[in-house]
Design a binder for these strands. Sequence first.
DNA 1: TTGTATGCGTTATCAA
DNA 2: TTGATAACGCATACAA
Lengths: 337, 337
Amino acid sequence: MLRSASVKDVAATAGVSLGTVSNVLNRPERVSPSTRARVEQAMADLGFVRNESARQLRAGKSRLLAYVMLDATNPFFTDVASGVEDAAEAADLSLFMCNSSNSATREKAYLEHLVEQRVQGILITPVDPDSSTLDEVIRRGTPLVVVDRIRAGDTVCSVSVDDELGGRLAVEHLVDRGHRRVAYVGGPLSIGQVSDRWAGACRAWADAGLPEEDLVQIATGGLKVDEGRRAGERLLGLPERRRPTAAFCANDLTALGLLQHYITRSRRVPEDLAIVGYDDIVFAAAAAVPITSVRQPRQLLGERAAALLLDETANPQHVHERVVFTPELVARASTLG
Amino acid sequence: MLRSASVKDVAATAGVSLGTVSNVLNRPERVSPSTRARVEQAMADLGFVRNESARQLRAGKSRLLAYVMLDATNPFFTDVASGVEDAAEAADLSLFMCNSSNSATREKAYLEHLVEQRVQGILITPVDPDSSTLDEVIRRGTPLVVVDRIRAGDTVCSVSVDDELGGRLAVEHLVDRGHRRVAYVGGPLSIGQVSDRWAGACRAWADAGLPEEDLVQIATGGLKVDEGRRAGERLLGLPERRRPTAAFCANDLTALGLLQHYITRSRRVPEDLAIVGYDDIVFAAAAAVPITSVRQPRQLLGERAAALLLDETANPQHVHERVVFTPELVARASTLG
DNA sequence: TTGTATGCGTTATCAA
DNA sequence: TTGATAACGCATACAA
């Protein structure tokens, strides 16, 4: 099959004009049943498939949406993606999923491609929400919505979750459970999430009237399982009387690593260390000691972001919105004993 | 920005012909430095972006590759995807990632779209490798490679891992560790993987000269964490003298669920139950009791599949190949005590 | 009800 | 070195 059949080919074998074939495709009611049947037969015989590029060119716009994920190996983002997917499907749009893998270079290359593809719009969890790369995209005419991050200024819509509140919920819970020396595990602080959750943690700590120095920060270089393990090492390396009795981790991956380090060293969770994670990924609930975690409405995040994007493309009076969802603490054995 | 600038617009503002603009884009060496500068300036001023649809239409083919995943929430597939992504990037192709979420309907819709997009080729882990939907795609001219599944006949390339061998490795390991009553946890058997691993398990069991009835099957309805938990319930519901001392799970998700059920019931792993998983996802190694698992070369699977696809698109003498990789057992605490 | 003609943006061929 | 023109496949306005 060298070149696939075009409307012209179909027209020829059906013995009708090209316009009629097009009518069969787009306004079948205008075509008499008999010719329609003939055309449809010809299409079947030739294995005719619409050429989307040509349609797009003609239409002046595509029926494509794109979601640029920050890290496809983090279940949090695949859940967001699933929300986006549902929304795209409902709007009869195809979804282009890309994974920047936390690389600004890769992200930029993808954005370049997407703009060239004339996607209707881009949903993105950017490596750096304030990068000028995003402005460039907008300047060139592709609407963009930031997911799970906040961007300074009001040039785009964004959908996120209140991370400071999340941090507060986590630490309030630990304080309620009687903990008076707590570690915050996460990093780098340059990630908005990490610093906001830390800010919320500090706030809750101060509100409880506890001394500042008893909320310690275990700074990590990232938010993967391995960094959690290393945080465990550092905690166990502290002299016992100064060692925190609870840890609040900036995400579940680090929480899982930390849990593993403690358990494999025959420490008990929550007796030796209570743990709170963040994101409530399926593996948090599935851990040997189910992990208390701050849940974010992941699917909803994706769905809502897609809705904003669609509004921006369709509605001339669209105004940029900043949607902030509320997180929720899910208490499990890792803090309840 | 209503309509983005075209080559024609660029030509007009630069005061040159349309052909010259095209030359600047595609054969800059043919254009005198001064006019080239003028054209480039105009492109910058107008925010010109190539229209990929038009290029595609003109070229007669796209620069798109697609990977249709079976389940984006399973880390196994995101790792395969990352391999595909690397290969696509190296070949300067964009990658369209889709997620069928185990739904044949959704899969079909995606394939339809992809064929219309004239993607160069499709990598797919199909819901049903023998479905005629795949034939339809091929018949309409889009090359296709099956990933992590095998399809009867030789109409397509496929890349997979020897699941029977994997099953054998798992059970041999358990037999070596002295287990004489073992459960196989997984289902439904209609999934090739599940039945092949079971076949391998049986083979190893027979080779060890052990009585058939002591390798028991705990059939599950799927391969998620929850099914693992339920399998745990069923195991603990057995009278102790007939209860298996080890379980081989058809994937890590079920292994994690099973592990959790045992641990939260204060059973010990591996003392009360040794556990072997399959896939060696990051969460297997990260479990409180690190899980022994059969590792598959996930990234490589994706890369190799992409390579086969690219060969099929570029090489007229391409012949379909069936690549089978060898799995490897990674022993950890869940069987080593 | 059906046919004809035009243009979307790009690239390549050929002429100037 | 640059310019004019045709073609890719489709959808639509308009003519028959």
